[in-house]
Amino acid sequence: MPILLRDIWPIENQRDYKIHFARWNGHSQPLEVWARSHREWQAWQEYRPGRDDFNRPLIFSLIQFYHETDCWMFGGVFRVLHRHPDRYEVELTDQGTGFSGRLKLRYPYRERTTRPTMERHYDGFEVLEILREPYSGRSFPGYEDIDLAFEELETLIRNDRLDWRAALENVKGIYLITDVCTGRRYVGSAYGDQGLWSRWRAYTETGHGGNVELRGLVEQQGLEYCRTNFRFALLEHRAVRVPDETIIARETFWKRILLTRGEHGMNRN
């Protein structure tokens, strides 16, 4: 028998709440926004479209846990202080503080409206899981299943996820960066004293990691373009004792196979 939200958190004054079903806005995943910056997450509650959607005193915020189907993570209860014509002014309350970033709910929400009334949906929320610690990025999936959006990689590195860092810090490897906007790809490698963790951290800081072709793209489009459009995948990983020459040879192999030189890619050599 499922455990429902009402079993662990009775909310009687439901007509005081609007729910915020925060989903991908075409630019950012709210789950990554919450994990990297709570101030940025609060700004998601302060955004006001043309109509007055948050027209009740409280906002019950839910974040789409996009790695799992029909899963939502609790992101806090906010009080609406002022309703300005172009924005809301809100503050985070202490309601459900222990659940924030930890409580995961199952609910098959498919409607276009992102800010419905609480009483229409409250009874349907099923408790899926309560995390031991607030979400700071998904768990390391194994070397064979690394496929990360730029902003997810940024979240992992900013929060210094120990499982990811331990796995990537002391391995060499060949990786693929894909610009999902243009379809162009870049093959790179980490070798010498620089493990994959350090190499990828450089990309989150600059967008280009020192690569000539990518540097030109960042100078033209800006770091925000990379955050929106870049994906990282690991093609191969090797132990640190493997000679650098082997890594360089495998990088050359992947450049040839994936046609990342010339008009189809972003490798210059």
Rank of each mutant, 00 (worst) to 15 (best):
L128R: 09
V240Y: 08
V180N: 12
L234E: 02
G142Q: 07
G210Q: 05
I247M: 06
Y88M: 07
G262D: 15
E91M: 06
G188H: 05
E111N: 10
F253H: 15
E151P: 09
W24D: 15
D16N: 11
R36S: 14
Y88L: 05
F232R: 04
P85A: 12
T252N: 10
S198E: 15
M266A: 04
R79M: 07
E126W: 04
L105G: 07
Y122D: 08
E40Y: 01
D160Q: 15
R56K: 15
G216V: 01
P30N: 06
T113A: 06
P134K: 07
R102C: 06
F253L: 13
L153H: 04
P85R: 13
E119M: 05
F232C: 10
W254M: 03
S61L: 00
D147Q: 11
K255V: 13
P141W: 04
E263C: 12
L168S: 02
Y88V: 04
E151A: 06
H82T: 11
T69C: 03
P134T: 07
P10C: 02
V218G: 03
P30V: 05
M118F: 05
C181M: 03
F125P: 04
T260M: 04
R261F: 05
L31Q: 08
L196K: 00
R201V: 00
E154H: 07
R158C: 09
R231E: 09
Y186I: 10
N170C: 00
L31K: 10
V212Y: 09
Q14H: 02
N269M: 03
R36D: 04
D123F: 05
L162P: 12
R102D: 10
M118Q: 01
R184L: 11
Q14M: 13
E263V: 14
P10M: 02
S100P: 01
M266K: 04
P85M: 04
